[in-house]
């Protein structure tokens, strides 16, 4: 068990370190002249050479690559990813500033997505009408097929411009989060719903359900009492896909609704080639990803007694 935990923690740390190294190679080593990336592309020709050299020295670009790497890595370990080129503020502060806004959006969207997914799985399992089941089962693949920017624009058009129920843009007040939240929930719900529909169906035909039938339970009683608990656990296995969808979705959603947040920050950082900020965001996202996976990996045995039993008797290789 201890080896299992150590292995998982080691892997998580490796992923974060490797994400740092990968972005370092992509952003600081591969570009022919990384100093150019630090300036606004529109003003690049107007910058005198001595300023360039000073900036290069300031960022350590005149040092050998390996020294630059170790220097940046050393600072990154203390949470220092340098300063944003555009704003001059520390990268870490810029990210932490935007975090609450995205966190509200993403957690709200995740909650709504889970609700949608469970309703779809519940209806698909409980209905006796074939056409209802087919219709409901088609919804998740529709949800992942519609581009987020289109659903955002449609939702904006209907609920803001036509009906005037919600503000179209900005981040003032609780009302402004509703439309982005719904927009983001749609693509996130798709894969979760697909998985739940499958695992609900599997559990619904298992032995303990037959026992419950025999004891006189009702259809919805069985789904809520027996199937729901056992079929929900596999949803954890796609936590990483869900997280990726949330991040990708929030980039587009925050752009469509002009909301501030990590997604918009990423887009501006890429647009302005704000190299330190881009690296900071990618490492930050990879770190959260690794953390989520670690939590899932470590909690899965606690939640699923069968897995705990295998872990106790076998070597961690089997896990």
């Amino acid at each position: 068990m201890l080896r299992y935990v150590a292995l998982k923690i080691g892997r998580a740390l490796f992923v974060v370190w490797a994400a740092f190294t990968l972005t370092f190679v992509l952003l600081f080593v591969l570009p022919a002249n990384p100093v150019d990336l630090l300036f606004d592309p529109a003003e690049i020709n107007a910058i005198p050479p001595e300023v360039r050299e000073r900036v290069a020295a300031n960022y350590g670009f005149n040092k050998p690559v390996i020294l630059q790497y170790l220097d940046r890595l050393g600072h990154a370990l203390t949470g220092d990813f340098g300063n944003s080129v555009q704003s001059g503020r520390p990268v870490t502060a810029a990210i932490l500033d935007m975090l609450p806004s995205t966190l509200v959006l993403a957690s709200g969207a995740l909650a709504l997505a889970l609700l949608i997914a469970f309703v779809i799985a519940f209806v698909a399992t409980s209905t006796r009408r074939e056409w209802v089941r087919n219709l409901v089962e088609a919804l998740p693949s529709g949800a992942v097929s519609v581009p987020v920017f289109l659903s955002g624009i449609l939702i904006l058009q209907i609920f803001s411009f036509r009906l005037g129920w919600f503000p179209a843009f900005g981040d003032e007040g609780a009302k402004s989060v509703v439309l982005p939240l719904v927009t983001l929930a749609i693509p996130v719900s798709g894969p979760i719903a697909q998985l739940l529909v499958r695992s609900f169906a599997t559990e619904f035909h298992s032995g303990y359900v037959t026992t419950s039938w025999a004891k006189g339970a009702t259809r919805s009683g069985i789904i809520i009492g027996d199937v729901f608990r056992n079929a929900s656990l596999p949803a954890l296995t796609i936590a990483s896909i869900t997280f990726g969808n949330l991040i990708a979705g929030s980039v587009i959603t925050e752009t469509v609704f002009a909301r501030k947040g990590i997604g918009r920050l990423t887009q501006t950082a890429i647009d302005t080639l704000d190299v330190p900020l881009v690296q900071g965001i990618v490492v930050f996202v990879a770190a959260i990803f690794a953390l989520i996976n670690l939590i899932v990996d470590l909690n899965y045995p606690l939640l699923d007694p069968r897995l705990r039993a295998t872990l106790a008797v076998s070597t961690p290789r089997a896990a």
């Binding site: 892997r11 490796f14 992923v15 997280f243 991040i247 990423t266 890429i270 881009v278 990618v282 990879a286």
Partner: peptide
């Protein structure tokens, strides 16, 4: 496979954005 893990840890849209910026 450890390298593959890293690529999987960065959401693909984000990774694509970084690559396109380079």
């Amino acid at each position: 496979m450890r390298v593959v893990d890293v690529f999987l840890a960065i959401p693909s849209l984000l990774l694509a954005m970084v690559v396109v910026s380079v």
